[in-house]
Amino acid sequence: MKSDNPGKPIVFVVDDDPLVRGSVSSLLRSVGWDARVFASTSEFLAEQRPALPSCLVLDVRLPGVSGLDFQAELSKSDIRVPIIFLTGHGDIPMTVRAMKAGAVEFLTKPFREQDLLDAVKLALERDQSRIEADRASLVLKSRLETLTERERDIMGLVTSGLMNKQVAGKVNLSEITVKVHRGRIMQKMGAKTLADLVRMAEALNIRPPGS
């Protein structure tokens, strides 16, 4: 199903009840979100999902695979989309399982419209944060690729808390040469301060050589 609002966050709705699909999609579109509806999980999987913030409003009881099992399948396939469950027959173990697996909300039909809207807003914000974190990670990894092997070693030593003199002793270089390397590393990584570089090293899991 093509988007009526290209570029806007997308809410996918999977429910085998056409009345539920219709009412939920109408509610979502009434507040300006792009809603795409599916009668089954297989239809949803066949949909091309653009790299935009999105979430999935998913019925627990579906023909074939259950919503909870589908949640597990998505996780195994590394398809990361925040899920809001809808059910007419919820119970505590079911709710606990869904929430422990990362669901944003578990709503029992009939649900308050505002509860669903609040849950969707939270889910889209969560997915936006994930997308931004993924992009930042890609930028860091691309910057890391510009470092020489020696610079990576020095980055690992510097960000472990060693002084330039100590780093120099570890890599058999003069302290002045280490300072030059350190300056180049900061420039290539886009780090303004040592604290910035330490955070980058943590994000990239950079460790001192031999550790």
Results as ranks from 00 to 15, higher is better:
Ser160Gly: 06
Ala98Asp: 03
Val167Leu: 12
Val104Asn: 02
Thr193Asp: 04
Asp91Cys: 14
Trp33Cys: 08
Asp91Met: 07
Glu145Ala: 12
Ala203Met: 15
Asn205Ile: 13
Leu19Gln: 11
Met94Arg: 06
Val120Gly: 04
Ala103Glu: 02
Ala119Tyr: 04
Ile131Asn: 04
Pro209Trp: 00
Val171Asn: 06
Ile185His: 00
Arg80Tyr: 04
Gly32Tyr: 03
Arg130Gly: 07
Glu202Met: 10
Pro50Thr: 01
Phe106Ile: 10
Arg143Lys: 11
Asp17Glu: 09
Arg135Pro: 14
Ser26Lys: 11
Ile92Cys: 13
Val180Ile: 15
Gln114Glu: 10
Leu68Gln: 02
Glu132Trp: 02
His181Asn: 11
Leu116Tyr: 05
Gln166Lys: 07
Leu138Val: 12
Met189Phe: 09
Glu125Val: 15
Ala201Thr: 09
Met200His: 07
Val120Met: 08
Ala133Val: 14
Gln166Thr: 10
Gly88Tyr: 05
Arg152His: 12
Phe111Leu: 12
Ile206Asp: 03
Gln114Phe: 12
Leu27Trp: 06
Lys121Glu: 09
Ala98Lys: 00
Thr177Gln: 05
Ser77Gln: 12
Ile10Val: 15
Arg80Val: 13
Gln71Val: 14
Arg49Val: 14
Val180Leu: 14
Ala51Thr: 08
Arg143Trp: 07
Glu47Tyr: 01
Leu144Phe: 13
Arg182Trp: 02
Ala168Asp: 04
Val37Leu: 04
Val120Glu: 04
Ala195Gly: 09
Pro209Phe: 06
Ala51Pro: 08
Val31Thr: 15
Ala136Phe: 14
Val60Trp: 00
Phe106Cys: 10
Gln128Met: 13
Ile154Thr: 03
Ser129Thr: 11
Arg207Ile: 13
Ala103Asn: 08
Gln48Val: 14
Leu138Cys: 15
Val60Ala: 09
Glu73Met: 11
Val167Met: 09
Leu204Gln: 04
Met1Gly: 15
Glu145Arg: 03
Glu175Cys: 11
Gly156Val: 03
Arg150Trp: 01
Met189Trp: 03
Asp127Asn: 14
Thr193Met: 06
Pro9Leu: 05
Ser23His: 02
Ala133Lys: 08
Pro50Tyr: 02
Leu122Gln: 07
Ala201Glu: 02
Pro6Phe: 09
Ala46Leu: 05
Phe70Ser: 00
Arg199Asn: 12
Cys55Gln: 02
Leu56Asp: 01
Leu147Gln: 02
Ile154Cys: 09
Thr41Tyr: 00
Pro110Tyr: 07
Ala195Lys: 07
Gly102Asp: 03
Asp115Cys: 13
Val31Tyr: 05
Ser211Asp: 13
Lys76Trp: 06
Leu74Asn: 00
Asp17Gln: 03
Leu173Thr: 10
Glu175His: 04
Leu197Ser: 06
Phe85Arg: 01
